[in-house]
Each structure stands twice: as C-alpha cells, then as structure tokens.
C-alpha cells in the first residue's frame, strides 16, 4: 500500500509516496539518498541509524517512513549549519571520537539530544546515555571525551 507523505528533512520539504512497510531509515537512504544514516543491525539495538524527529533522537529503523509524515527530521547531514560544523562534530574530530566512522552519525545524533536534557553530564551519565549506540572501534573512550568536550563547547557558546 502506498501512502503520501510530506516531511521536512534538514530544513528541506520532501513530498512523496512510500509503501506502508518502508522503514524511515530506508526512506532516508534509498529515496532521499541521505546515506549518512547507517543501518547496523536488525533488532533496534545498535543505534547507527539514530536521527532526530522533531528534535528528539530516535532509531530510524524502528519507525515507519509513513509515521514521519508532517515531522521535522534531522539527519547527520543536517547537523552542520551554514557550512559550520556542529560543536559535536568538531569535538568528535578533536578528541578522535571515531575510527571507521560507521557508528559516528548515530553517536552524534544521540549525544546532541542527550546534551539538551543534560548539558553538564558526568562521565558515567555520558556512558549510560550511550546505552543504545554500539561502537566496535574506539572502546568508547574517546567518544566519551568527545561528548565531554562538546558539552563544554556548547555551554560556553550559550
């Protein structure tokens, strides 16, 4: 069954038809060619596909594209604004928070949402906030450092 949807992704409006069963992650990757959202598992565990819906982090593999109708979607491609990297992106680079880069978009999307509710987290809180995101390269050590740095940058910017 085809459904008409209209979504705003990274500030740009898209209107199209999707099958009911199309997952939002597939819609973003296949229909919109926004391949920065990655798919790392099939049990909604790994978080590589994390994006924001109306500002909140969600695993886009656990949402139907049709459910995003009328929503504001932000993917990793929309994290930078006007060509300026988001502090989270800068921090991941500065603190070597990524190696193969596959989990990185999801990590950053989760972390940016997390810092909205907890702008000054402890290390333990950061580790717990990453419960829904797997990384196989970094041992999480520098991901934690990156988020700490991002928190600092973002609080200084306010």
């Amino acid at each position: 069954m085809a459904n008409k949807i209209s979504v705003t992704v990274n500030g740009k409006q898209y209107t199209g038809e999707v099958e009911s069963r199309t997952l939002l992650s597939d819609y973003l990757r296949e229909d919109l060619s926004l391949t920065g959202t990655h798919i790392g598992c099939d049990t909604s565990s790994c978080g590589a596909c994390t994006i924001h819906i109306d500002g909140k982090a969600v695993k886009s593999c656990t949402m139907l594209a049709v459910q995003a109708d009328g929503c504001e979607v932000t993917t990793v491609e929309g994290l930078a604004t006007n060509g300026n990297l988001h502090p989270m992106q800068e921090s991941f680079k500065e603190e070597h928070g990524l190696q193969c880069g596959f989990c990185t978009p999801g990590m950053m999307m989760t972390a940016t949402d997390f810092l909205k509710t907890n702008p000054n987290p402890s290390e333990q809180e950061i580790r717990e906030a990453l419960e829904g995101n797997f990384c196989r390269c970094t041992g999480y050590h520098n991901i934690v450092r990156s988020i700490q740095l991002a928190a600092k940058k973002m609080s200084e910017a306010v």
Binding site: L34, T35, G36, V76, K93, E94, G101, F102
Partner: peptide
C-alpha cells in the same frame, strides 16, 4: 604528533561512502 585525522570530515558530516551507500 597527534595530528587530527584528515579523513574525519567526511565521516562526521555523513558523507562517507560505504558499499551499501553506492547506487
């Protein structure tokens, strides 16, 4: 020296090209 990685930019902006990204 701990030179920051030159490859990072494409990964942190979602521009990395993994096999499944190729159409």
């Amino acid at each position: 020296k701990s030179v920051k990685r030159v490859e990072d930019k494409r990964f942190i902006t979602g521009q990395g090209k993994y096999t499944d990204d190729i159409k």
